[in-house]
Design a protein around this nucleic acid. Structure first.
Lengths: 344, 344
DNA sequence: GTTAGCACTCGACAAAATAGAGTGCTAACA
DNA sequence: TGTTAGCACTCTATTTTGTCGAGTGCTAAC
């Protein structure tokens, strides 16, 4: 049995309908669907075939049909039409993104807000990975006896900081000297190469300060990786609007999975290797996300991917719209990262 | 009619019972309560009195009684016993707080996690207000044509950054000079006095750089205030465990209120004026929190209050326990802020 | 002042009845 | 051979009805 054009058409109609209504689609509603002039009986036959082929499922004997993950996959790969954003949607996004964006975290947060506001799903945005950024400045600021703050600034305007211990005998002016030395020496060095270069090039010099230098390098390495806490989340409660989560327990487990952002962090990190990715239902590794779909995109500075962001919602997701929104956002985020970040 | 000792005792028993069970308390269960040797009929009479006095409410004629906000207020002010933390609870908190705390945001986040884990309510923690901190360092790092990053470090080890515009004609070495000058000049100055001092003291000098200085000062002022995004939230989904939120719509409106953290931010900011505060049900300004109680405490560095944190849960909250936990946390947070923050 | 007794109220829950949407199959039709 | 009308059947969701039990307020007696 093959998937001929008619079967495809019917399947698409079923999926479109189900995405809207969230309730099993019956043969009658498809036969009344414009474009088909077939009776419900014929549709029923086709639906039975589609079920046998694994594209449809039946919750119980006398219910309509529901698309399977396999059907969504086909839909996304071959049948879906991308939506174009309405003026209002574009306006809504711009409104979010025109807030005072003078810090990266603010951008991430506004992005998440915009995404969840436009799509009505849950949005997640991962902070940039700094690995491919280049060093602009290192400053070690003494705080109180034995403690100092290392501050690192990168090309794209990201600052990271960490408290470190300072051996008693190192003076303030020496800290200043070390700051300057590190900045000069490693100016424009890729962040993820600093550790290696320090240990290679500085083996001989400053040998009495070795342990201290190590602790600085360690702090830098830690800060290159974005952390779990740096996943911005927005609209987690949106899923409560969808009937598939009207059961409190389902909602609870979804929200709990999402609230501990480490799951999302792993997900986004993996996704940051691909410009776009769509994962449908059981394609998700994680048990808790088996009836969600996740759509992600990366943002970049110039050509260098910095991080990723995405949408998480029921498998019955408006894929066309979501993808358009992510494409739009990807552009505007990359643009902001590359050019616009400032205090106006 | 007066609140005599017996009425008080009965009221306390009812509240204690209701906090545990969440279901209306009947006269019989109180009369069987150890310590009273009264029949249920007598208790009923007393309960009728307590209702008339406004301490109890009846969901419907043939149900037991439920404590009113007024009752909780009395309970909190006069009758409640503080709980002592169990060893396990202390261990749980310590486990959270012994993670790698090399950055303030991490501390805030771990605090929120610990609070929600121990209390099973929703925890919120506000980032420090930097107003009372003193300046340690200002660094202006040029990024690309026309943009630079201002980084500010304060005594307690907080770093903030903001992208600013730089007029074309200002060179890198001049930025370095300005950084050094500002750092030297305002070293140890209270953060909230910098703006004023700059405009007062620097009126004469550097007059050709006035606009630029202003933009720096503005950026600093903005960063002194913690922002909405700097409210760490944890355990929002905990409320789903409580029967008062088994209705999806109630849960939805609670979660939505909490997710947009600006409400909590306002709340915590107001609360940062008092060492502890307890707000019960309708005492809350906000309509959405009318059937929640909020308990907050401040943390400080030395004697200077930095910010506040707290718990939000149903009015039927285990106040005794929550207060003990907050007291404990207040101590340990203030201690960490004052001494311990480092990279071990 | 306290208590036993009793009629009454009301919600929670379960069982039964009903309606309706949808199916699969069969037989007839083009 | 593909399409369609018709029909019996299945299954869920909803409504209705009945029952149970917890709890109350009131009264009269102790």
């Amino acid at each position: 049995m093959e998937l001929d054009a008619r079967k495809l058409g019917i399947l698409k109609a079923i999926i479109d309908e189900y995405i809207l209504s969230a309730s099993p689609v019956g043969s009658r509603s498809i036969s009344k669907h414009e474009g088909f002039s077939l009776s419900s009986a014929t549709i029923r036959n086709e639906m039975a075939d589609l079920e046998e082929l694994g594209y449809l499922e039946q919750p119980h004997t006398s219910a309509g049909r529901v698309p399977s993950d396999k059907a969504y996959r086909l839909y996304v790969d071959q049948m879906m039409q991308k939506a174009t954003l309405s003026d209002d949607e574009v306006k809504l996004i711009r409104a979010h993104m025109s807030a005072k964006l003078d810090e990266v975290e603010t951008v991430m947060q506004q992005t998440a807000h915009a995404l969840s506001a436009v799509t009505h799903y849950t949005a997640m945005v991962m902070s940039p990975m700094l690995a491919a950024n280049r060093l602009r400045h290192i400053q070690i600021v003494p705080l109180r006896e034995g403690r100092a703050l290392v501050v690192i600034v990168t090309t794209a305007g990201f600052a990271r900081d960490a408290v470190i211990r300072v051996p008693e005998e190192i003076t303030t002016s020496e800290l200043e000297r070390i700051s300057r030395m590190l900045t000069e020496r490693f100016y424009d060095c890729r962040m993820d190469h600093i550790a290696e270069r320090v240990s290679r090039e500085m083996a001989g010099e400053l040998s009495d300060r070795k342990a201290f230098l190590c602790s600085i390098v360690e702090a830098i390495e830690r800060k290159i990786e974005p952390e779990t806490q740096n996943v911005q989340l927005s609209g987690a409660t949106n899923i409560l609007h969808y009937p598939e989560y009207s059961d409190v327990n389902k909602a609870k487990s979804f929200l709990a999975a999402v609230e501990g952002r480490s799951l999302l962090y792993d997900l986004l990190k993996r996704a940051s290797k691909l410009e776009f990715s769509i994962t449908i239902g059981a394609e998700n590794q994680d048990e808790l996300l088996k009836d969600c779909s996740i759509v992600t995109a990366t943002y970049q500075i110039g050509d260098e991917p910095l991080g990723s962001f995405g949408i998480i919602g029921p498998t019955r997701m408006n894929y066309g719209k979501v993808i358009s929104v992510l494409e739009f956002m990807r552009m505007s985020l990359s643009e902001i990262m590359t050019n616009e970040l400032d205090d106006e």
